[in-house]
Design a protein around this nucleic acid. Structure first.
Lengths: 214, 214
DNA sequence: ACTTGTGAAGATGTTCACAGCA
DNA sequence: TGCTGTGAACATCTTCACAAGT
């Protein structure tokens, strides 16, 4: 392992490797090669080995990797060994859908609260949580030591939302609002822009269409 | 403009530029510089100019860009000038949330149908559409000439879903199932993995925590 | 014999810095 | 003067190919 800077693309792939190793583990597979991981995740075996090499040596030459052992290390690297507390702000359809999304829970993320400005939504039950009013957000984050926030409010309200979150102590934010947000250097921010994804697809479709016209 | 290969990162940024130009247009701003676009989208002015240079010359030296003119070109590049027809398969919470998501509609994407295998969901009203049974999907895609599909079914059902879609003629797929899918070369596929995004944030939080321990 | 781990080569993407033009 | 457009320098990421280890 080296103290180099690690590409973000590597971290994304490690997360995908881990998910696939999880499946393998559940299916009772005990041993895997870099080539098999590559096949399952649509990558190359050299890439898999390079990605892992940033963090240490996890395999046995001539043999491969022990599934359980490798997955345990990957989860550790990704910080998934202790549960992470999350709040969702914005109890619209997307916020509620994420609140109830199983994919978070079974990877160690605990959605502890869901908040909305709209008082007509406050009190509504979503799964086993109740929608809380925004003015309680700051105190809730502090009391429950919340580390991560998910933003599903409209673009116009996104900046004030992250300001409240970060002032209260949230250290990482996943933003679904189509807006470029400003946060302090020590806060990690990731944007998921659903429309951008469709537009990228649309671009490549357009390329094909133009090819077809020739 | 050159016939070079264009980085996907460039396409993603063009989509973000376009969204910001849209805001500017709505606010009545007529003129913008590459620096101003960079500030609004958290990038560099050189990057903005390089991205645009793949497709032509849209500005005036010494002056900048005409907002409306540039946005019109970007939308053309992204294939957003004619509306794109979309189906959503998987009428769970995420599927419904996406169905009702405004961000698609106001960028030219038309959700024409929503489908689910679960017959107890079929017939249910979502916005102004009704959930249809899976066996109607193939015919619907052909009849309405659907170009894009959004997959929000569970991981185990994702591959068979895209097989039906692509056999019926869908040319681009946005997949939310945490599963690596196989599609023909002429079909464009993008994966949005919500848990991966949280895991990447978790990784960077872990780095900071380890820093703090020193 | 087989598969990892890795330096070196190659490919790709970003930034610099300035010529070109209004 | 001011800002775009762009070749060249730089930085980053991926692939290659083989030595090392079992």
């Amino acid at each position: 392992m080296k103290a180099e800077k690690i590409p973000e693309a590597t971290i994304i792939r490690l997360s995908v490797y881990s998910r696939n190793l999880q499946y393998m583990e559940e299916m009772g597979i005990t041993k895997v090669s870099s080539q098999e991981i590559a096949d399952a995740t649509d990558g190359s075996s050299a890439q898999v080995r390079k990605d892992l090499a940033y963090f240490g040596e996890f395999g046995t030459r001539g043999v491969g990797y022990e599934v359980k052992h490798l997955n345990r290390h990957l989860k550790k690297i990704l910080g998934l060994t202790k549960p992470r507390s999350v709040v969702i702000v914005g109890a619209g359809r997307l916020g509620k859908a994420l609140m109830l999304y199983n994919g978070f829970g079974n990877r160690g993320f605990r959605v502890m609260g869901i908040f909305d400005k709209d008082m007509s939504k406050v009190g509504e039950q979503v799964g086993d949580l109740t929608i809380s009013p925004m003015y309680k957000l700051d105190q809730f984050i502090k009391t429950h030591n919340i580390q991560m926030g998910v933003v599903t409010v409209p673009a116009a309200a996104a900046q004030e939302t992250v300001d409240i979150m970060t002032r209260a102590g949230v250290k990482a934010i996943l933003n679904f609002a189509p807006k470029n947000l400003i946060v302090a250097d020590d806060v990690k921010l990731r944007n998921v822009d659903l429309a951008v994804n469709l537009e990228v697809l649309s671009f490549y479709m357009g390329l094909e269409e133009r090819e077809g016209e020739k």
